[in-house]
Amino acid sequence: MAVHAVCALGALLFAQAVVRLRRRGRPDLAGWGRVAFFAAGIALVPISLLALDERADENLTWHMTQHVLVGDLSPALLVLATRGPLALFLLPPGVLKPLARTPLRRLVRPKIAYALWAANLAVWHVPALYDAALHHERLHYFEHACWAVAGLLAWTLLLDDRRAVGLRVALAAAMFASSQVLSDVLMFTFHPLYPAYPSLRQQQLAGVVMMAEQVLTLGTLAFVLLRPRIRPFRRTVTA
């Protein structure tokens, strides 16, 4: 129910932002591509948290799939859809202005966002906490909310065109390296780490799922950021 409500609220806010921006004569900033990205991003939330939930309770690989969808792929698509001026239209001015003055704005500083993202990744994979979240529904909801918020913060920075390419590539590399440590722990361990999931094979596959998803999202981002800079250098060298 809560998932449906959050998704419906998000869709409502996005729809009114698109309409307002289009009415102001800027359909270029609220095109159908953005709508498609948002639809895909928001659809992944119920898919991962509801459709995959039963499988995730029994299988660690599916649980990891759920986490990477809600904590990485979905936030990436949502930020891709709302970045730039459209983001300023998501909330009414009466809410946005006071919000911008709160200390919350500091959360999108690179070091803070990365620290939160990495801490979230590390803390929620501690076996005792992972197990506790499985047995307490509210804690489990909180865990998923943490994934989503940490992902949104990180991707807000990664997709911010005002920031230098080097900084964004560095952040992507730091995120990949951090998650690679966890992937390796899951893949390289010869005994199950989480009491609720006794299958070692599922645990190793969970590590592969995490690595593959990060290669897909962060790798694509790095490629898109670096590609324009590769070609001019080649010409210079050849000349």
């Binding site: 790095a222 670096l226 800079r229 590769i230 250098f233």
Partner: peptide, 17 residues
Amino acid sequence: GRLSSPAALAYLGVGFV
């Protein structure tokens, strides 16, 4: 030293994967 930093990153990324 014939690869720029972006090209080197792309090269290493593809090689790693």
